[in-house]
Structure formats: structure tokens, C-alpha cells
């Protein structure tokens, strides 16, 4: 959490995370460049680097994409999500090396401007087999640039969570563009089926994990939506909560997280004001509801972050009927007190 602009709020976890990113990048580059240099000593050094950075950025992109669903499936992977934006920026930088080297190698030092050449050297836009695959990579890189440039919380705050989130969901468009860039490009040059196999494994992993994580949430939503009673949603018996944790219901428009903190029950929006993280998968720590993604905290009664922080989320009114907790599906204004249940 932060209330002041700072480029990076370093802490040991972030340093360890970045160290791992550097280690992975160096490991891959050493392995790829080392083996290529031995097996194919005549491979053009610039082409070698283009291939190294291109394949590495593809690998990193897969890692970026599987972290989200992995964390939804098991909270044990949450440390991988904590500093994912640095992984995203690293992916952009590696992809940028690939893109810039390719642009210079294949389009520079000729009779046309490099960028004009990028779009005009191959004009077979109506042919799938001959489609100018480099253009696809270029657009993927441009989107990645905007994502990397706006990854800081400064931009999240200034662009607004909804716009920022939509912008960063473009990672899926980037993934499609990159897959097509590879399929219509290098795959057509190589005779070994290995790259296709690698791509299929990666694609299956990304799609499979997303489907699993999505299915888990859909199942939960469907199950709880059936429990409506007199306008309020029936959440469950007071004995069905784990201490400090939440149960989540869906009011048809959004998810509501109902937390138990000692003898007190309170309900807030499931969507963190920071990056939209699932607050209901968080815990009450020191009396504050804490988001599992980046540790943003909210008071249980009014959904406000404790001073000096200024984030707010909606609260919801609760009722006790026998030993059952019910929640009003209509949200209160963000930052206003909701009716809690105190035993």
C-alpha cells in the first residue's frame, strides 16, 4: 500500500522476485546461446540473438499468463503474483530487444524507412501462408509497451481501475498476436516439429489453467445464487465460517465478501480498489480485511483503508436470522458504514 509516489517500493520480497527474474533470463540465454553457438557455429550472431530474445519473451509471456489462474487455484502461488508487473515489464524489454534487433537486421540499411519497410516489404496480407508475420509481432510489442509503461500504480490511480484493468487485459490479445506471429513466421522455416509441440504445450497450459480457474468461480457463483430469500441473500450458518476469512456470494452484478472477525460479521465488495483483487480470498489481519494480491487493507465496518491511505470499497448490510447470515445485495456507497452482525 502506498500514499506517496515512489518509483519502486523495494522490499526483500520484491528484490528476491526480481533476482529470480534475472536468474531465469540469464539461465535461458546462456543455455540457448551456448548450445546454439556450439551446434550451429555459422548461425549469424544477430539472428542468434533475435531467436534467443524472441523465444525467451514467448516463454516469459506464458509464465506471466499462468500466474493469475494458478493463484486462483491455490493461494500458495500468491508470492508469484505479488511482483508480477516486474515480470511483465521484463517480458516487454526482452520482446523489445527481439523487435528492435529484427527491425534493424531485416529492414534497416536499405532503400526504405525501417517502419515503412515493416509494413510494405511483404504485402501478402490476404494470404495466410505468406502473411507478413512481423507486423503481428510489431502490434503485440506496441501493446506490451503501453502495458509496461502504465504498469506503475501512478497510472493505475490516474487512469482509473476499470480503464487500467481493460488496458492490461489486452495481454490476451498480445498472446494471440504472438502465437500467430510465431505460427506464421519461424514455424514455417523450421522443419523440426519441436517448436509446434512446445507451442501446443504452452497454449494448453494457459488455456487449461484459465478454464480450471474460471470453472471454479462459476461453480461457486451458481451454487450461491440459488440461496436467495426475501430480497436478501442467504449466505450461511454462522458456524460455517473460518475465523478471519470470508464467504463469497454473487448478487448477480458483483461478488460480495462476508468476513468473520471474532464475533463480528461484515460484508464488503469482493473487488479490491487497487487492482480488483479478490478480497474474499484474503484474510482479516490486525482487524483489517487484507487483499491477497498486494496486501491492500480495508476496515471491516466502512470499507475504508486506514489513514493515511485513501482507498475505499462498497459495504453491504447484513442481518442475522436464527443462526443464518443474510446479506442485502444492494451496495452502500464506498467508504460508508454497513450494518454488521455482532454476536
Amino acid at each position: 500500500m502506498s500514499h506517496q509516489y515512489k518509483a519502486i517500493h523495494w522490499n526483500p520480497q520484491k528484490k528476491a522476485y526480481d533476482l529470480l527474474i534475472v536468474l531465469l533470463i540469464i539461465s535461458y540465454l546462456l543455455a540457448f546461446v551456448g548450445v546454439s553457438a556450439i551446434i550451429h557455429p555459422n548461425l549469424d550472431p544477430v539472428n542468434l540473438l533475435i531467436r534467443a530474445f524472441g523465444s525467451l519473451s514467448l516463454l516469459l509471456l506464458h509464465l506471466v499468463l499462468i500466474i493469475g489462474p494458478l493463484c486462483r487455484l491455490s493461494a500458495r502461488f500468491l508470492p508469484m503474483l505479488y511482483n508480477r508487473r516486474h515480470l511483465g515489464v521484463s517480458t516487454f524489454l526482452i520482446a523489445a530487444f527481439h523487435g528492435i534487433l529484427s527491425l534493424i537486421q531485416f529492414h534497416a540499411y536499405g532503400d526504405s524507412n525501417m517502419l515503412i519497410s515493416l509494413f510494405t516489404a511483404n504485402t501478402q496480407y490476404t494470404s495466410l501462408a505468406q502473411f507478413p508475420f512481423q507486423v503481428l509481432g510489431f502490434f503485440a510489442l506496441i501493446i506490451l509497451f503501453f502495458m509496461a509503461a502504465t504498469s506503475h500504480d501512478f497510472w493505475l490511480k490516474n487512469l482509473g481501475q476499470n480503464f487500467w484493468k481493460r488496458l492490461h487485459m489486452l495481454i490476451y490479445l498480445v498472446y494471440i498476436l504472438v502465437i500467430m506471429h510465431v505460427m506464421l513466421g519461424v514455424i514455417q522455416l523450421e522443419s523440426s516439429p519441436l517448436l509446434v509441440i512446445f507451442l501446443c504445450i504452452g497454449f494448453s497450459l494457459v488455456i487449461g489453467l484459465h478454464l480450471l480457474a474460471g470453472w471454479k468461480e462459476v461453480k461457486l457463483d451458481r451454487q450461491l445464487q440459488e440461496l436467495k430469500d426475501d430480497g436478501y441473500l442467504l449466505v450461511g450458518s454462522i458456524n460455517s465460517w473460518e475465523e478471519g476469512k470470508a464467504r463469497i456470494v454473487n448478487n448477480g452484478k458483483q461478488r460480495i465478501a462476508i468476513f468473520k472477525n471474532g464475533n463480528e460479521f461484515s460484508a464488503i465488495s469482493n473487488r479490491c480498489a487497487h487492482q480488483g483483487g479478490p478480497l474474499g480470498e484474503g484474510q482479516v489481519i490486525d482487524g483489517l480485511i487484507t487483499c491477497p494480491w498486494h496486501g491492500y487493507q480495508y476496515r471491516t465496518d466502512d470499507g475504508c483503508s486506514p489513514p493515511p491511505f485513501t482507498e475505499k470499497v462498497s459495504t453491504f448490510n447484513l442481518q442475522l436470522l436464527g443462526d443464518k447470515i443474510l446479506v442485502d445485495p444492494i451496495p452502500n456507497q464506498p467508504g460508508t458504514k454497513g450494518e454488521q452482525v455482532k454476536l
Binding site: L20, S27, I39, F77, S192
Partner: peptide
């Protein structure tokens, strides 16, 4: 879990680098 994941990741990155490099098309 994170320790195991780190080992898996390093293995995957190194193995991918080696295997992809071994399968470049022959350069003249």
C-alpha cells in the same frame, strides 16, 4: 511451494533453451 516452483522454473527455462537451440534448422 515457491521453492519447488523456482526449481521447476529454472529447469524449464534451461531445458527449453537447450532443446530449442538443438532443433534449429541446419545453417549453411
Amino acid at each position: 511451494t515457491i521453492k519447488k516452483s523456482i526449481f521447476v522454473l529454472i529447469f524449464v527455462f534451461v531445458a527449453s533453451g537447450v532443446v530449442i537451440a538443438l532443433h534449429h534448422q541446419k545453417v549453411s
